[in-house]
Design a protein around this nucleic acid. Structure first.
Lengths: 226, 226
DNA sequence: CGGACTATTGAAGGATATCAAACCGCGTGG
DNA sequence: CCACGCGGTTTGATATCCTTCAATAGTCCG
């Protein structure tokens, strides 16, 4: 972990992000007062389940995995955050305690905002409150999506659903690059890495080709039917 | 479905509820303007996944199941709401579309609030915004809990966890009455009814006795170890 | 007492985890 | 340049857990 300076490209990521985009520049600046920047290597732990934290986190680059701990070192991923996403804002309203752990899933640069300041701003400025509300709704929907997919779909179906969520609607054939290691994808989908691998090979017969991180889809319809 | 009048005991439930309790009476009254009350029988559908709705729902009595639909009529419960709980507040900030269906899981009395009005109030009154934020954080945590339990625990462990969440901390032996049918509990825990039944019988050897809706626990520690 | 719904139990099959081994891509150092 | 080693990935074999279907047992309420 190393402390850094906020660059102008960092600011560009901030103001384009879902959360900050809707806020005027002056408000963004107010939120940024007292923010700290740090760089982390893969597997660096940002916080642990049960910790008291007074920050809200924002990913400037890299990847962060949010997970709960189970017996015997088991871990269950709750979410994965990439560039431009904010997390651990829950803690700010739940007694500053986090109910999950977070670690960098690859080398990452993380911005830490002062959660007390943000909460004060939210109390004073309805626009900030509104932004937080919409952010929470979005996060809630993501978690519900995961839960519903876990309960309704088999492994290949979940993978198909993930692939389709990356498909520009309208195209019948397309390809894209996985934004992270298969390992991480497996965790996000609630699968063991082996199960993800097998799911991919099941989907091969529906026109999905996997080479490294590149995914290629021949027939979108076939996937949707799966 | 039948339209009703808001009674004084209904008001009592409202002002004691997690969401309304923190707000001054005048604000509560403002939110209640234009609210409508309705009574539903078991299996009445309140809304369907994808519907456009302009209400926020509040359970005055009974039980509501929130669920997503899968292929071939499968359903996955996202949450179960009892007296004093509010739901579908998400839709208000996500284009007034609901991403899940809701139905009464037993005869219920439901209050419908005007979501446009509530959103306006939130924009004008930071106290209301704050209440909504905390409500969303709480809901988000509940959903995360479910997701984590699904991924980390076996059926008997999930049931044990559910039972323990009803245990007054400190006591070693206790008993309580299930707040709803086993059917509903199974859905909430993401299990088939048969699996719940088998889980209970597995837990018998850890000192759990089930008779009808009554659950009796002989040794709390034994459950925690499970 | 009968009927309908709810819950339990049994048997069989399916899906995924787990363990173990082989494979691959890639950077390193000889 | 090549052998080596390492981590990530794939594949195979097996075990576990849960669902599903079917049948039986309870329970509530008329």
């Amino acid at each position: 972990m190393k402390t850094l300076q906020l660059t102008s490209s960092d600011r560009a990521i901030l103001v384009r992000s879902r959360f900050f985009a809707r806020l005027p520049h002056s408000t963004v600046e107010a939120i940024l007062v007292g923010a700290t920047l740090s760089s982390h290597e893969e597997h660096d732990v940002l916080f642990r389940q049960g910790d008291r934290i007074d920050d809200v986190f924002f990913v400037l680059s890299g990847l962060v995995r949010l997970y709960r701990l189970g017996k015997e070192g088991r871990e269950a991923d709750i979410a994965v955050f990439t560039k431009g996403e904010m997390f651990a804002e829950n803690a700010m309203f739940l007694g500053h305690r986090v109910t999950a752990s977070a670690e960098a899933a690859e080398a990452s640069i993380i911005l830490r905002l002062d959660s007390r300041k943000l909460r004060q701003l939210a109390a004073a400025d309805p626009e900030v409150a509104q932004a937080i509300i919409e952010h929470l709704c979005h996060r809630g929907k993501m978690t519900e999506d995961l839960l519903a997919e876990d309960r309704l779909l088999t492994a290949p179906q979940r993978v198909a659903s993930y692939i389709l969520s990356h498909c520009p609607n309208g195209s019948t054939s397309f390809s894209f690059r996985l934004p992270f290691q298969k390992n991480v994808l497996a965790g996000k989908l609630g699968l063991a890495p082996e199960a993800l691998s097998r799911a991919f090979s099941t989907l091969r017969q529906s026109g999905v080709t996997v080479k490294g991180r590149m995914i290629e889809i021949r027939d979108r319809q076939a996937l949707e039917r799966f």
